[in-house]
């Protein structure tokens, strides 16, 4: 229950309120294996019939609608396909200090994964830079098992 209080003298009553949904989602066999992979510290994709590797995996080929084939492990390293500098992180985002949102194309994958890069400063960011996944020590089988990506030296 909440109570209204005046917003301003000539205005109307207002009250703060919060909506919370405690959703629990079943993830299906494809995402279920991807998340189990994260729990093991590995990143899995899925191969389409045309041989493209989708990371994160999809249940179907987005280009043809065909069922996908085998799960394949890809590297935990890759390159940044695009990035945006979050100088003021918002509540609930992966890092509390400034970071980069990034689309990361992992080695062995043909599509990019959305996550963040802990680079300290936008000066350290550029498209095409190499990054490596940093996993949480205690993993639960969620996307948050990946803390972030971090810059690695060229060719490393």
């Amino acid at each position: 229950m909440f109570y209204f209080s005046p917003m301003s003298p000539d205005s109307v009553l207002s009250a703060p309120y919060v909506l919370e949904y405690t959703y629990r989602r079943s993830v299906g066999p494809v995402l279920g294996r991807f998340l189990a992979g994260l729990r093991d510290g590995r990143i899995l994709g899925v191969a389409t019939r045309a041989g493209r590797v989708l990371v994160p995996p999809q249940e179907y080929d987005p280009e043809t609608g065909e069922a996908v084939g085998e799960m394949v492990e890809v590297s935990t390293r890759g390159e940044v396909a695009s990035w945006a500098w979050m100088s003021e992180p918002r509540p609930g985002q992966p890092l509390e200090r400034p970071f980069a949102w990034a689309l990361v194309k992992l080695d062995g994958a043909d599509t990019a994964l959305l996550h963040v890069v802990d680079a300290g400063s936008p000066a350290r960011m550029r498209t095409g830079m190499r990054v490596a996944a940093r996993f949480r020590d205690e993993r639960k089988g969620t996307i948050q098992d990946l803390v972030c990506f971090e810059p690695v030296a060229e060719g490393a």
């Binding site: 991807f34 994160p56 500098w85 918002r90 985002q93 992966p94 949102w101 689309l103 996550h115 948050q144």
Partner: peptide, 15 residues
């Protein structure tokens, strides 16, 4: 895999 990370509309547009 995406919403749990909390990317906001401005950040995605920036990408």
């Amino acid at each position: 895999l995406v919403a749990p990370l909390g990317p906001d509309s401005v950040s995605l547009a920036a990408l």
